[in-house]
Design a protein around this nucleic acid. Sequence first.
DNA 1: CTGAAAGCGCTTACAG
DNA 2: CTGAAAGCGCTTACAG
Lengths: 333, 333
Amino acid sequence: MTASIKDVAKAAGVSPATVSRALGKGPVSEALRAQVLEAVRATGYRPNLAARRLRSQETGTVGLVVADIGNPFFTGVARAVEEAAYQAGLRVILCNTDEDPEREAIYLRLMQEERVTGLILAPTLVTAERLARQPLAMPVVLIDRPGPPGRYDSVLLDNAAASAALVDHLVAQGCRRIAGVFGRTSGTGVERAAGYRAAMARHGLDAREEFALPQVAAAEAALAALLAGPARPEAVIASNSLLLMGLLQAIRAAGLRIPEDLALAGFDNESWTGLVEPGLTVIEQPLQEIGRVAMSLLFDRLRTPEAPVRKVMLGGRCVVRGSTARRAMAALP
Amino acid sequence: MTASIKDVAKAAGVSPATVSRALGKGPVSEALRAQVLEAVRATGYRPNLAARRLRSQETGTVGLVVADIGNPFFTGVARAVEEAAYQAGLRVILCNTDEDPEREAIYLRLMQEERVTGLILAPTLVTAERLARQPLAMPVVLIDRPGPPGRYDSVLLDNAAASAALVDHLVAQGCRRIAGVFGRTSGTGVERAAGYRAAMARHGLDAREEFALPQVAAAEAALAALLAGPARPEAVIASNSLLLMGLLQAIRAAGLRIPEDLALAGFDNESWTGLVEPGLTVIEQPLQEIGRVAMSLLFDRLRTPEAPVRKVMLGGRCVVRGSTARRAMAALP
DNA sequence: CTGAAAGCGCTTACAG
DNA sequence: CTGAAAGCGCTTACAG
């Protein structure tokens, strides 16, 4: 069926070893190389990567395991990872876990069976905890979400600073009753909640937190809980874009005006956040940079396996829009 | 380093063949199977997929090559493909070409070298044409975009019907000068333009077409061209969501009201189209179904390679929103 | 620079 | 049911 290296060798009148060298980096005379390339063309030969990997014990493959490839955050990071991998002559296997720890486990096992050179992983909370007990037997860089402290290289948003930036901004706009709705499947939600709490305390304000699944419907329930409470909030922060979208819909459905009745802010500068009325104030993450740094950490780790663990924290950018505008907000009591 | 099947065999006191059978489907006594599983646990053995694939000549892998994984259309289809593959015990290699024919060529070559069982492909126009001259040496199902006629199984939106539905709807709302902005990198844009043209002709109306790269900036230029023309359109149709977003921004930037000054409609029911003001009228595609049908066509093809080529056309759903509301539109001349 | 040979880690006829 | 042996398609020391 498909031509093998033997067929090419026969067609070129050389040994399989010479074909291999001509197509790889081995030393071959120009004359033979030309013969080989001609034979490759004639036979339509394509190397069998399974055989190459088995023999060379190098897969030239990076695994990228993310929670939700439909999330523009991960799409953006994936692009950067793919670009860096391409530059380095590596392939990327992209796996989407849908925030499901079971799928995560399946894919992590698969990555081992594929013998990937290294892995870039955005783990759920469940898997982050399992990683503490059952370390992965390959070089891993964590992105977006914290894992067990001090075990793996990682590149994260400075979540404490980002949450603080949102709180500071809202306080500057005159808000005092600021609530937060945080995703509960990832360590990121936990970190952003902690940052929010710390910032609120710094301002001498009471924190009011809800934890929710990263789903539109869950955000609606969270808003209902907040509105039902004693001191109705003047502003709400969402820790991810799905929750932000859910809150926006729920606030509209409740007939409340943004920002007059309720200011709204969140994470991730997705294009729709700038298209809705009013535009939503968000923390923009440096997607490209996260992907680039993750690959760079991975390459460093492969080069020097015993180097100390590195944790890189990147700053976000606060994009201010109408959803937190001061002049439009109701006067404080 | 990593345990091989020999290590497991030694630990279990059996031959490598028995280990292989115990982990696969071969006939093994219950006693030996238990010993093997215990040895697997003890050694932390994970099969080497490269070796398995080389020996069995089956990769158990489906390639999915899409133009833009950041596009919710492809994300949705990819989910369905992945789900169907998972059910069938297959893996999916996801490749993102960014509408770049060169990257497409690289990935198609890679899919051959990976010896994928089959391929699901959404080709650019350039690659669709190349496919006519250089057929792919593996089972392929085309999705979303047409290829060379009669060569490959495919599952497509009924683009003519979808375009007609938009035109009919706009005509029913009282529009007559309906323009269209179509993506020019894919066969889909071409098909939707043809459907638009046919529907306009059926109504006795003049077609007014612009072709643009699927980018926000290109949509702005297209709108400028339309507005600069002699008979300013009352409505514009966008053939994909990036163009739709670009048109929305450009119309707003031009200070025009939707739908009073210009009605707007397009393809793909992305969440933001329902969140903006006014909501945008769009054709919703059956993403799940496209992915499921594609995999089913692929499986059929693998089973019966000589069966006649099949082309499945799925209907879209017209989601009517405020951007094409009649009462709000200006009176006709 | 070139070829013959070994071997990567599996699976699978082939005997028993 | 079980084991010994062959071989998938490559690459890479090893000689020359």
